[in-house]
Nucleic acid binder design. Sequence first.
RNA 1: GCUGGGGUGACAGAGCGGCUAAUGUGACCGCCUGCAGAGCGGUUUUCCGAGGGUUCGAAUCCCUCCCCCAGCUCCA
Length: 483
Amino acid sequence: MSLHLYNTLTNKKELFKPIQEDYVRIYSCGQTIYDDVHVGNARTYSAWDILNRYLKWKGYDVFHIMNITDVGHLTDDADQGEDKVEKAAKKEKLEPMELVTRQILLFYKEIEKLNIDFADIYPRATGHMVEMIEAVKKILKHGYAYEKNGTIYFNVMKFEKDYGYPVLGGRKLEDLLAGEGGRVSEDELKEKNSHYDFALWIKADKGHMMKWPSPWGEGYPGWHLECSVMSTKYLGKVFDIHTGGIDHIFPHHPNERAQNITMNKTDEEPIKYWLHSDFITVNGEKMSKSKGNFYTIRELLEEYEPEAIRTLFASTHYRSQSDFSISSLEEAEKKLERLRNTIRKAKESKGGDKDNLLRAIENVKNEFEDAMDDDLNTPLALSKLIQFTGKINNNLDSKPNILDEAVITLEELAGILGIDLSEKREKSQDAAPYIDFILEIREKLRKEKLYSIADEIRDELQKKGLAIEDTEEGARWYIKGKT
RNA sequence: GCUGGGGUGACAGAGCGGCUAAUGUGACCGCCUGCAGAGCGGUUUUCCGAGGGUUCGAAUCCCUCCCCCAGCUCCA
């Protein structure tokens, strides 16, 4: 089997074939950078990280762009209301760009902690104002936009007539018509030719801070525009994969696609595969700030290991809604522990002369790849790894080189899922000689059968976060869980 | 209302036409251990929302119904 991905553009799994043989160009919708990264964001980025790693493992060169929206995302609907960045900045009495800088730095740190590979470029909307204005000009010139009082709207009806409005996720334009009905304000309707039209460039109201001069007066770009402009700039008019959250199936991505087509005037489908990851719920409810059921990565990392979070993410398929709870995270911790325990045992084993593990290594590689080829079935892939740990544990008397290979395989495959199994840099390295010393004394007590004192020592060390295991060759210890 | 995705053992979560329906967790019992831990073995008696249909054969396909979630407003 070879890699198949579920394409929201066609609503089916398709064989993945990049435009260029060994080179894959990916654009990911990143985040509007006014707030901390939460589990939901992280889950999505984790999914694309796995996609990237897997493609690389398969031998492709991957060029990955993830945008950072630092202007143009409004609190109300697409075309009115306050800019989110500006609003958040005002609240904290910061310059908008000051807030953005702070949040970006935090974003990078957390992405790194979560073992999410950095994208090759993180372009920012504010850095592409010139290109965005040029894009609006092009779309106007090509006849798919019109101006009303300094605001430029995209003409969806005309686009629909000429190209067919993108049907992402099985939706049709008519479906969106009244919808749940008139959330569109009177003012807006007055200006727009059609209810579906969206703004490319928005005239700045008085007091709007984030604005730029343009041929149509001072204004700022519409939300969708940056993605079209930046993807075209860095990836070209036609590229392979576009990712994003399920919420972008409408309206962001169809609009973005319409812009790509009309500004670049391509007859070819500009983006071959659209991938969307589903949302996370918290204890069965949609995660939202108003409900207070919001987990930021920052707070989770205070108590849990990033590897546990990645294990949790890998435990559900990216296109399934997954319910986040502390107990699910703790369950993921246990899976992680199992993986680590096996590696520890294998590394400590002296080995023997068996070689039937060889076949298990071959099998797990194949099974893992089959699972991943099927639209990145990470839960299945992970279960194969866990099955493999059983095989290793049953064959700790294998030839040392085979044991080594088993460990390398396990680490490599888990790594594709973003789960780093390499040994932790032990924080208490300095304490190691003392711990060893204490355990030597404890060993003497055990030989004297002074078990109550020995057990007391063990309990105390365990309370401090160490795992103590007695073996024939004496006690072993390691740092358990979060260091 | 419309659109999409779902309902699988105590729980999480694969499977989507055909071996006794993965895997993990939990519970229980063994092995190991001074006791634990980790690990290993076993058990958890017929888990596929309901009802029809197609088929030699369905959790898997079709129809009807019930229920859940999300989207249709900014959102990963």
